[in-house]
Nucleic acid binder design. Structure first.
Length: 257
DNA sequence: ATGCCCTTGTAACAAGGA
């Protein structure tokens, strides 16, 4: 089985690149984030043409998540029990069972700055996610993948000095990730295809990608039943190149199941 | 080379992203 996670930064703007990438990469399951379309506006017919079923959860202009699968897609859930809003519910999580594994695609709140109410929302959201995952992990194998908007360690940002005082690197955010792993999930880290660190995001501005000034914030957290069977994991930086890319690269995981 | 911010909604900017 091959699965992947990718923050596409608008499914409408990225559809040609997504279809090309699906055709060449041939993942069985894909977790998408920042689709930026309403649930009913997701281009399901286009991905159906490549053999994928779709489960989408969107709200229009902001956020939006989806799952694509060509190995079955059942028991779809929008959000998770106890998920907070800001203050209204936001389209940041969707899960479904594909090939016997519950996949959840997550788009964690950004936080903006540590003194912003959005940062408190981010921490509350991550704590609620942890609580909800406790039941899911007990029920069977789980993969939670997506844009976590947290770099787990200082090695996961291109220069820790630049991020002092910023979100994505603060101890409470990192502790929230640890708490999620502690419910029984492991961090499946992709191989970088260039350089020594598997960054998944590079700002569009100032040639950051070309200087490899990135961050590892797109993460794959998997139950041991999945993590133990990983045969390869790669950050597909090829998808960050060329005309009209997302600012995030996909993480692609192969599992012998 | 991989190449120097992007997307959406609304009407020339505003807001968010990280």
């Amino acid at each position: 089985m091959r699965f992947a996670t990718w923050n596409v930064n608008s499914i409408k703007a990225r559809l040609p690149r997504l279809l090309e990438w699906l055709d060449s990469t041939k993942p069985d399951v894909v977790c998408l984030q920042e689709t930026k379309v309403a649930t009913d506006a997701f281009p399901a017919a286009e991905v159906d043409g490549l053999g994928y079923e779709t489960a989408a959860y969107g709200q229009g202009r902001w956020n939006g998540v989806a799952l694509l699968s060509r190995i079955g897609l059942t028991d779809v859930r929008h959000g998770f029990p106890g998920e907070p809003g800001y203050p209204e519910p936001e389209a940041r999580a969707i899960s479904a069972v594909c090939g016997g594994i519950r996949f959840m695609s997550v788009y964690v709140p950004n936080g903006r700055t540590p003194d912003d109410p959005h940062y408190a929302y981010k921490l509350t959201w991550l704590a609620a996610l942890r609580d909800a995952l406790t039941a899911d992990v007990a029920a069977g194998p789980v993969v939670v993948a997506g844009d976590f908007n947290v770099a787990p360690t200082d090695q996961d940002v291109w220069d820790p000095r630049v991020f002092i005082g910023s979100t994505h690197v603060t101890p409470p955010e990192r502790a929230a990730l640890t708490a999620i792993r502690d419910v029984g999930l492991r961090d499946v880290v992709g191989r970088p295809l260039k350089g020594d660190r598997p960054f998944t995001y590079w700002d569009y501005r100032a040639g950051m990608f070309h200087q490899n000034k990135g961050m590892r914030i797109d993460l794959v957290y998997a139950s041991p039943a999945v993590a133990d069977r990983v045969t390869d994991a790669v950050v597909d930086r090829e998808a960050r190149k060329g005309k009209g890319p997302s600012d995030h690269a996909p993480v692609v995981v192969d599992v012998d199941i």
